[in-house]
Design a protein around this nucleic acid. Structure first.
Length: 577
DNA sequence: GCCGTTTTCGGCCCGACTGTTTTCAGTCG
């Protein structure tokens, strides 16, 4: 996908323009374009000129540059800009606290254009004396370099969200708080987050801030003011706390939830309506009269917009959809009626089918598909055809005893490296549903892997493709796959694609899932449970679905089991409705 | 460079905190 490459180029062009001191609005235009291309659900290669122009923040000039890149593999204006500053100077911008103005000064006055040289100069106090730099700035630069070297990568939502909830609980124990909410990218449920933003009210703001900066987990205080403080906690994660008055809580929550692009859009709309939005409220421009701000809804209502759910606030067309009254009714966890991807002790799961059923019932589900691994996956104790048939008997017997709950019998069948399927059709047609997925040959070419998956989808018994890119966030890159081709074939064959809720998978991701919806691909949200606690990862799958603008009707396992059987591709099974 | 029920030209979101300053620029979110 060229999107990431083009986004990186636009972002780099913005950096260079900033170092050069170019028009700030032009710089912002490049940054906005970069962000929006990065979050796009389709590859720019597949878009016509008109479709490119529909992307927020892309006009004639940038559309032409995108086309130039697709055609020639380079953008002339980018190469030209790169020639105007020394290579290496850009790398200085990676140091937190060191921006374009200072970087430029450092280069012009000391001819420093690498982080190594910068570190040496700071240690030897050779930066002091540059306008605006004294001892303290040298120290901060050294701290910033340490942060860069430690690696400040984004972390999976599945790690950061529980950590954030713990911090909130800890804060409540240590100081008096009124409202307290996690904001930022965690609230938008981005799949990875680089910091934790908390917004709160307190009857004793100073006490609240004090409690925050003295939390046991705090390793470094970046800044500490009366309404805002930032710290770094033990594992290198930055945490920001904002404390505001009750009348401002909603405005602050909206502001700190972002995204930045979304906020800019709202504020822009406000200005045009003679209003002003900041983190303290919504005000009338002419007399500064406060119109609202206690509730987040105020912000949207006063702009004449319906409430936009946090997961959609990415400046990816949600403002336009809201204006047109076309906001989707996002799916919620309560809509999910069953889980279609569950492993039992028959393969590599930790529990018996009965235990899994009890856990699913306790969570309000009304059906479950037992989908143990197939024979080829030896490490997971995959089932032979004989064991699969024995399992079928067990499930049939259990179903007779159950009321108001149905166990579907399925398999998670391996798509083997050579593209063949691990069970013969005669076995597959005995099942209620068939998941096919890849567990080997990750290093194959994009064409090979795409072909393997497409071949599986063309099998009439394959109902679902699970975790279609195989990624493990932060641990294993997705394998190369032409997702748009996969999704088109899925739509043609009626094969469902899974959103795997396991926090390190989240596969499909949000932008692929949004594209799937556009193409009319049926989707399912599954936990891929191997142990009972994993049922509780469902909210992460829901989060991805909501970020993809999915509605209840887009997801098959919101259906009652009877209707699910009608919609799932493959054998309708012999089971009980 | 984008964008338009105020505009096709002239606007473009807003504030906290820090360090280095004698009143503010730079950076960040």
């Amino acid at each position: 996908m060229k999107n990431q490459e083009i986004a990186r180029i636009f972002s780099e062009m913005a950096d260079i323009l900033e170092i050069k001191g170019d028009n700030p609005f032009k710089i912002r235009a490049y940054r906005r374009a970069a962000l929006n291309i990065e979050g796009l659900s389709r590859s720019v290669e597949d878009l016509s000129r008109d479709e490119l122009l529909e992307i927020p923040g892309i006009g004639e000039e940038l559309a032409a540059k995108i086309e130039e890149y697709i055609g020639t593999g380079a953008i002339h204006a980018h190469d030209k800009l790169k020639g105007e500053i020394p290579s290496g100077l850009l790398s200085l911008l990676a140091v937190p606290g060191l921006g374009p103005k200072t970087a430029r000064q450092i280069f012009e006055q000391r001819h420093i254009a690498s982080i190594d040289d910068l570190e040496r100069a700071a240690r030897e106090h050779k930066l002091a004396g540059i306008p605006g730099i004294q001892k303290k700035t040298e120290e901060n630069i050294l701290k910033g370099i340490a942060t860069v070297q430690q690696g400040h990568e984004r972390r999976p939502l599945g790690r950061v969200l529980p950590l954030a909830l713990d911090l909130v609980e800890e804060l409540r124990k240590r100081a008096r708080f009124g409202a307290i909410e996690i904001a930022g990218s965690i609230r938008r449920r981005k799949e990875t987050c680089k910091d934790i933003d908390i917004v709160a009210t307190s009857p004793a703001p100073e006490e609240a801030m004090k409690a925050f900066i003295t939390l046991p987990a705090v390793e470094q205080i970046i800044m500490h003011g009366p309404t805002r403080s930032s710290v770094v906690i033990s594992d290198g994660l930055q945490v920001d706390l904002r404390v505001v008055a009750e009348e401002s809580f909603g405005a602050a929550l909206a502001y700190l939830t972002g995204s930045k692009g979304h906020n800019v859009r709202l504020r822009d709309m406000a200005v045009k309506q003679g209003l002003k939005i900041n983190e303290y409220g919504i005000f009338r421009e002419k007399d500064e009269a406060r119109l609202g701000g206690a509730k987040e809804e105020d912000v949207y209502r006063l702009l004449g917009l319906p409430f936009i759910p946090p997961e959609m606030r990415e400046d990816q067309g949600e403002v336009e959809a809201a204006l047109a009254g076309r906001l989707p009714q996002l799916i919620s966890q309560a809509d999910i009626r069953g889980d279609l991807h569950v492993h039992s002790r028959w393969s590599d799961g930790g529990h018996t089918i009965e235990e899994l059923v009890a856990a699913a019932k306790a969570r309000g589900l009304s059906y479950l598909a037992i989908t143990d691994h197939s024979q080829g996956l030896g490490v997971a104790h995959g089932l032979t055809v004989e064991r699969l048939m024995a399992q079928k008997q067990e499930i049939a017997a259990l179903n007779i005893q159950l009321t108001g709950f149905t166990i579907l019998h399925g398999t998670e069948m391996d798509i083997k490296s050579d593209g063949s399927l691990d069970f013969p059709d005669q076995a597959l047609k005995e099942l209620d549903l068939v998941i096919a997925s890849i567990h080997s040959g990750f290093k194959q070419t994009k064409e090979q892997i795409t072909t393997r998956i497409i071949k599986a989808m063309k099998n009439p018994y394959v109902s679902i493709i699970a975790h279609p890119t195989g990624r493990l966030i932060g641990e294993r890159d997705p394998y190369e796959v032409e997702m748009d081709d996969i999704l088109r074939v899925a739509a043609d064959t009626g094969t469902a694609i899974e959103i795997n809720a396991y926090p390190l998978r989240l596969d499909l991701n949000d932008s692929h899932a949004r594209r799937a919806k556009e193409l009319g691909v049926p989707l399912v949200i599954n936990t891929d449970t191997h142990s009972i606690s994993q049922f509780d990862t469902l909210p992460y799958g829901i989060a991805i679905a909501r970020r993809a603008w999915l509605e209840k009707g887009d997801v098959l396992n919101t259906l009652a089991v009877k209707d699910l059987r009608k919609r799932l591709k493959g054998n309708k099974g012999l089971g009980i409705n």
